Amino acid sequence: MKKILKRSLLIFALLMTAAGLGFAQNQFPSQIWHKGNIYGLDGQSFTGLVKYDLDNNLVQLQTDRIETFTASNVTYFEIFDEVYGGVRKFYSLPYSLNGDYETPIFFEILTEGTDIALLCREYIATDSRNMGAWGPMSMNPLWGPQTMAGYRLAFNYYFFKDNQIQKYSLKKKDLFTMLSDYEEEINLFMRKNRLEHDKRGDLLRITAYYNELNNN
């Protein structure tokens, strides 16, 4: 009897875990609570469940209560994204989104080196090609296309170079302008590995390779 009860409880726990994972997969990353840490400007750190809102540059911490932080009082925060893969870090950096004046906003750091860093800001965009489609979003560490219920996960990319944040236009010629001095090597690297100039995982690999070349 005890063995049957234990087995039933184990099966129930596995089913609940699978159901929770399926529910999480039917949401975009910013809609999910993640295990993580928040680091304040005053050196304090906070651990708990973390949820972020890049549209409003807010990050929330859930422990025994929910606290809300703005990009103005956070140095950076990190999450462990169990559904979409790995540790992700978001730094608060001064930038002018609307062309007015610079204010602290959150950028995700994809890769960084001594010369250049690749940053991004995700957002949820309407995807008319997939209206009515619904299902788990397949995921891997290089982040392939994410679509769900007529919406898709999209990204704006930025390069941090020479102490400036510059938005990337997603044009190949502008990529080579940003990653100057190694156009021939990078072109060969992209062809050899079949990398595109406008995909998240590919851009990460290209920028990391550029930083390797600079360090040699």
Rank of each mutant, 00 (worst) to 15 (best):
K2V: 07
A13C: 12
L14F: 12
L15G: 08
M16P: 01
T17N: 09
A18E: 06
G20N: 10
L21V: 14
G22Y: 14
F28P: 04
W33C: 04
H34D: 06
K35P: 08
G40H: 00
L41C: 05
Q44T: 10
S45G: 01
S45H: 02
T47E: 12
L49N: 09
L49F: 09
T63I: 05
T68Q: 08
T70N: 09
A71Q: 00
V74P: 01
T75A: 09
E82R: 10
R88S: 09
P94H: 06
Y95P: 01
F106C: 05
E108Q: 15
T114K: 13
D115C: 08
I116V: 11
C120H: 06
D127Y: 10
D127L: 10
A133Q: 13
S138P: 04
N140A: 14
A149R: 03
A154Q: 04
Y157G: 03
F160I: 00
K161C: 08
D162F: 03
Q166T: 12
K171N: 09
D174Y: 05
N187T: 13
L188W: 02
F189C: 07
K192W: 08
N193G: 06
L195E: 05
D202N: 04
D202Y: 00
I206T: 04
Y210D: 07
E212I: 10
N216M: 15
